[in-house]
Nucleic acid binder design. Structure first.
Length: 650
RNA sequence: GGGCCCGUAGCUCAGCUAGGACAGAGCGCCGGCCUUCUAAGCCGGAGGUCCCGGGUUCAAAUCCCGGCGGGCCCGCCA
């Protein structure tokens, strides 16, 4: 009963499959086949074949009934169902036509009664979920890669919320690490200058960071070059020279924006005997919490200020900011180290304390449980540097435990780039090895591929990146120009809302496992299969509903629902909860996007071909308005889940 | 060297987990539709060795094996 209330499409399939199981009960009594029966009911590739179809060969195999007996058995029994209009056999298929007088009433009633919760699934088990996302190093602004992360994480957050889960969003500020120390070193060498008021702090400090690391790398390479020249290794020398040239051109680009800083840094760092040792000193002092090194935190928090601003612009939020330094200073990392040292998996790798996973991984069952590929070899996890400072994954063990504990989380989702697959596997194994089996199992690495910009290679260390801020700015400008061409002005806010929604739609439309190629023009394509297309379709539907005023559902003539294109529209509307349910388990946003685009397209066809408000027949008009209202609700709920802005006008 | 991911129309991508009806969509290109509910729309057309080669099957883009091409990982970086 719950099901029929919340998920009309599932209800439809279940009604048919349970009828099937009745008919086939003598041959197909196994209860396991019941769900298989439901899966066997599919959709025909073309609308004119019917609403649902069953492939006879598959059914005959499943139930072990000869093909020729099946046909008559099925048609006669299914046609008795109230929900079924007719059954047609074509070749190897039984095609089912739904009775839309019955079905449309069910669908439309469900949608209006659930309204902003339509899509919500009643039998979903509620969970407490943490989404850790973005977590970009606090040394530069968010670039396109972090942008993809932010969009995906925000989507996971909103989807979980929609499903009725308790969700918390966390950002892990990685201020205890070499990157942060490099930035702090550079900023310190500059004498902690004020950030130019014309620049966002993350942008300015990102340049300082890039200049610092690039200068240090150049100095290192020059040293190697001298050695190569001295030893007469000409190949090596020319290789080094071209590498240096490339870095120098990066530096030249940085100098165009912050010339003084680049000059001062180049001079001061060059006069240093061993700049990298200085950086390590900062790292060590900061990790110990020594007061004279606390400037690291101050610098990082300026970058974080900038990042917060960007996230706000993306309409994305964080509930808890976790500073890695706090984790270390609170002694949580030491606890982990202590526990590890008494573990049976503990040992020394190249003289450094480490956890070894070879024994753990010999059982196939554990690999399965922890989602570690069958043949993947996992190297030992080194816990500490020889100088005593900790390493990222070690700190992440402590952090993961903190997340699970503080929120009593059932599940922790880490949205992290795909290149960290191995270290995330090590993390799960380490947790398991230390006795945190449940945590290891419920820690999910939600990975995504990198983002490409055609014809450009990106590197944070070199300052070669396109920032999310720039992307938003450019797209907003494009929106404004477009509107101007059409003779209407649009506010900055409206332009931003369209721009960021377009980005989100594009990012979510591509499977996270594929590299995303960003083409600015394409993101803002106002045509089909785009964010603006969905927003526009919603506005169209809204405009109709507004003008329709109050319509009484009592006057709806459901008998008119069997004709195209209303028929398809109703079937499509009925699927929304089913799509949500599938996406909730697969976590593939692209399926949700494809559904919404399809629904919008069908609605636009309907809108073009049929008068809605001008429909003379009152009952039919009420039906058309109700369907339009259904589209409105589904598109709105869709946009909420994707983090897109629901615009009332466009 | 080992592992993972990707390869489908000129471009960007669905479809592959659970094999089945002529392989789909958008962009771009060509041609139509605004005195009527928002034309950021709709209708029509052209465009494909599903990377290649084997195998399994009544049936393969989908499963298996072997290649080829691209990306990523195999750090006392994160």
């Amino acid at each position: 009963m719950w099901l029929s209330l919340s998920n009309p499409y599932r209800w439809l399939k279940r009604s048919i499959s349970s009828e099937l199981s009745k008919v086939l009960s003598n041959a197909c009594a196994d209860p396991k086949t019941l769900t298989q029966l439901e899966n066997i009911i599919e959709e025909p590739p073309k609308r004119e074949f019917g609403d649902l179809s069953i492939h006879l060969a598959r059914l005959s195999k499943l139930c072990d009934i000869p093909l020729e007996n099946l046909t008559n058995l099925l048609t006669s029994s299914l046609e008795k169902l109230n929900l079924v209009e007719k059954v047609v056999v074509v070749g190897n298929y039984v095609n089912i036509f739904i009775n839309y007088t019955v079905f449309s009433a069910q669908v439309l009633n469900t949608i209006t009664s659930y309204d902003s919760r339509y899509g919500f699934i009643e039998d979903h088990v509620r969970k407490r979920v943490i989404v850790e996302y973005v977590s970009a190093n606090p040394v530069h602004p968010l670039h396109l890669g972090s942008g993809r992360n932010a969009v995906l994480g925000d989507f996971l957050y909103r989807l979980n919320k929609f499903l009725g889960n308790e969700v918390q969003r966390r950002y892990y500020v990685n201020d205890v690490g070499l990157q942060a120390a490099f930035l702090a070193y550079g900023y310190y060498k500059l004498g902690f200058p004020d950030i130019p008021p014309s620049m966002k702090p993350d942008h300015y400090l990102g340049l300082v960071y890039a200049a610092t690391t690039t200068i240090i790398d150049v100095l290192k390479l020059r040293k190697s070059l001298k050695e190569a020249e001295a030893s007469g290794d000409l190949n090596k020398a020319s290789e080094l020279r071209s590498e240096i040239d490339s870095l120098m051109s990066d530096l030249g680009r940085l100098a165009e924006v912050i010339p003084n800083e680049v000059n001062v840094l180049a001079e001061k760092i060059a006069s240093e005997e061993d700049p990298e040792l200085e950086v390590l000193k900062i790292l060590r002092g900061y990790e110990r919490g020594e007061p004279e090194y606390l400037f690291v935190r101050r610098v990082c928090s300026r970058v974080i200020d900038g990042i917060k601003e960007t996230l706000e612009r993306m309409n994305t939020g964080i509930d808890v900011w976790d500073w890695e330094s706090d984790l270390v200073w609170e002694g949580r990392v030491d606890e982990v180290l202590e526990k590890a040292s008494s573990s049976s998996y503990f040992g020394f790798h190249k003289g450094a304390p480490a956890l070894f996973f070879k024994n753990l991984l010999s059982t196939e069952e554990l690999r399965k449980r922890l989602r570690i590929p069958e043949v993947l070899e996992v190297p030992p996890l080194i816990l500490r540097r020889s100088d005593g400072t900790t390493l990222y994954t070690t700190r992440d063990i402590a952090y993961t435990l903190k997340k699970f504990r503080e929120f009593s989380a059932d599940e922790v989702i880490n949205v992290i780039a795909i290149e960290q697959t191995l270290s995330q596997a090590q993390l799960r194994l380490a947790l398991y090895a230390l006795g945190y089996e449940k945590e290891a199992e419920n820690l999910i690495h939600y990975s995504y591929e990198m983002v490409n910009l055609p014809g450009a290679s990106m590197s944070g260390r070199r300052g070669r990146y396109v920032t999310v801020d720039e992307l938003l700015k450019q797209l907003s400008e494009m929106v404004k120009n477009l509107m101007r061409e059409r003779g209407s002005e649009v506010s900055d806010e409206q332009a931003l809302k369209i721009a960021r929604s377009a980005i989100k739609y594009t990012v979510l439309s591509v499977s996270p496992s594929k590299t995303l190629t960003v083409d600015l023009k394409r993101i803002l394509d106002l045509k089909q299969n785009s964010g603006p297309y969905i927003q526009y379709t919603y506005v169209r539907a809204r405009s109709v509903i507004e003008k329709a005023g109050n319509y009484s559902t009592g006057t709806i003539d459901y008998r008119r629902a069997g004709k195209e294109p209303i028929r398809t529209l109703i079937l499509e509307l009925s699927k929304f909860p089913e799509v949500i349910s599938d996406v909730a388990s697969s976590k593939q946003p692209e399926d949700l996007i494809a559904y919404a685009n399809n629904l919008a397209t069908i609605f636009n066809k309907f809108y073009e071909s049929e008068p809605i408000l001008r429909e003379p027949d009152e009952g039919f008009r009420a039906l058309k308005v109700a369907v339009t209202h259904g589209v409105l609700i589904v598109l709105r709920n869709f946009m909420e889940i994707c983090g897109m802005d629901v615009l009332e006008k466009i």
